[in-house]
Deep mutational scan, measured.
Amino acid sequence: KVKIAGPGLGSGVRARVLQSFTVDSSKAGLAPLEVRVLGPRGLVEPVNVVDNGDGTHTVTYTPSQEGPYMVSVKYADEEIPRSPFKVKVL
């Protein structure tokens, strides 16, 4: 029921550039959304989540370095389908 889309989860994500993606939970009811961005060697990146007021949230983060990242998206305390997402930061 929760959908996710945006360039911040795709290929070609650049280090030190603001990345974003949208989480659409409009068909999933009200529940807490939790997003974690883990970088190389367990680095935890700050994440900004904005409630758009229409059942969607815009998530932004800036990867601080190149390497493999994991983006975990939980809704109602459960990983959404395909989460955690593997993101290769260049």
Score class of each variant (00 low, 15 high):
K74Q: 06
L38D: 11
E79H: 12
L18S: 10
Q19E: 02
N48M: 13
H57L: 05
N52E: 11
F85S: 03
S64P: 10
V17C: 08
G39F: 02
K88S: 15
S83G: 06
E79T: 05
P32H: 15
N52V: 08
K1F: 07
G10P: 05
P40S: 04
G55F: 11
P46C: 08
Y75D: 00
A28D: 04
E79F: 09
G53T: 10
R36G: 09
L18P: 12
Y75N: 01
P32I: 07
R14V: 14
P7N: 08
K27G: 13
S64Y: 08
R36E: 13
P46Q: 10
G67T: 02
D77Y: 08
G67E: 01
S25P: 04
S72Q: 08
A15Q: 12
D77A: 09
V2W: 00
Q19R: 01
G42W: 05
A28M: 04
S25K: 11
P84W: 01
K1Y: 06
I80G: 02
L9F: 05
E78T: 12
K86Y: 14
P68E: 15
V49E: 04
N48H: 08
I4V: 11
L30A: 13
I80L: 09
P84V: 04
R36C: 13
S83F: 02
N48K: 15
V2I: 13
D54Y: 08
S20K: 12
V37S: 02
V47H: 08
S25N: 05
L90Q: 11
S20F: 10
P68K: 15
Q65A: 08
A15T: 08
G67N: 01
V2L: 05
T58I: 10
G10R: 07
D51M: 10
S83Y: 00
P81W: 03
V59L: 02
V44A: 14
V17G: 04
Q65L: 11
L30D: 15
V35Y: 04
S20Y: 14
P40T: 05
K88Q: 15
Y75C: 06
G42F: 07
Q65M: 14
Q19D: 00
G39N: 11
T58W: 09
P40A: 05
Y61V: 01
I4P: 00
S64K: 11
R41S: 12
V71W: 01
V73N: 01
S83N: 03
P81K: 06
D54R: 09
I80D: 02
R82K: 15
V49Y: 07
L43M: 14
P46H: 06
V2C: 05
G42M: 07
H57T: 07
R36Q: 08
P40N: 04
L43H: 12
P40H: 04
V59Y: 07
I4D: 03
G29D: 09
T62I: 08
E34N: 07
V49S: 08
V37K: 02
G8K: 03
T22M: 10
S72N: 09
E45W: 05
R41N: 11
Q65N: 10
P63I: 02
N48L: 09
K3N: 13
T56S: 09
G39Q: 03
N48C: 11
N48G: 12
R41L: 13
V87M: 10
R82S: 15
P7G: 07
S26D: 03
H57N: 07
P81C: 06
K74H: 07
E66L: 09
V89I: 05
H57W: 10
V13T: 04
A31M: 10
S11K: 11
V87F: 14
R14F: 12
T56I: 14
Y69P: 02
T22R: 07
Y75F: 10
V13Y: 02
K27H: 12
G10C: 11
S26I: 06
L30E: 15
S64N: 09
G55N: 09
D24P: 01
G42A: 10
A15R: 06
V47S: 13
G29P: 13
K86R: 15
R14S: 12
V87N: 02
P46W: 07
L43T: 14
A31K: 09
K74Y: 11
V49R: 06
D24N: 05
V2S: 03
R36S: 13
V44M: 15
M70K: 10
P68I: 14
T60H: 10
D54C: 08
L38V: 15
V17Y: 06
V49Q: 14
L38F: 15
V59C: 13
E66K: 06
H57R: 10
K86S: 15
V50Y: 11
G67L: 00
Q19H: 04
I4Q: 02
G29S: 10
L9T: 04
R16P: 03
G8T: 03
E66I: 09
A28N: 04
S25Y: 06
L30W: 12
S64D: 08
D51G: 12
E66M: 08
V87K: 02
V87Y: 05
G39I: 03
A76F: 06
P63H: 03
G8V: 03
S20P: 03
Y61N: 00
Q19T: 13
P63N: 01
V44C: 11
V23L: 05
R41F: 15
N52Y: 06
F21H: 02
G42Y: 05
G39Y: 01
E45G: 03
G10T: 09
V50K: 13
E66Q: 09
V47R: 04
S11R: 09
L43C: 14
F85A: 05
T56M: 13
T62F: 07
Y69I: 06
G53I: 08
E34Q: 14
G67H: 01
L9A: 03
R16A: 06
S72A: 05
S25A: 12
D51H: 12
P81E: 08
V44N: 15
L30S: 12
L18H: 08
T62E: 05
D51I: 07
G39L: 01
P32D: 12
V71Q: 00
V17Q: 13
Y69N: 01
I80S: 03
V47F: 06
R36D: 09
P63Q: 00
L43R: 12
T62N: 06
S20N: 13
A28V: 07
N52M: 11
K27P: 05
Q65T: 14
R82W: 10
P84E: 03
A15H: 09
N52I: 09
Q65G: 06
V71M: 05
I80W: 01
P63V: 01
K3I: 15
S25L: 13
K86V: 12
P84H: 03
V44S: 14
V50P: 00
L18T: 13
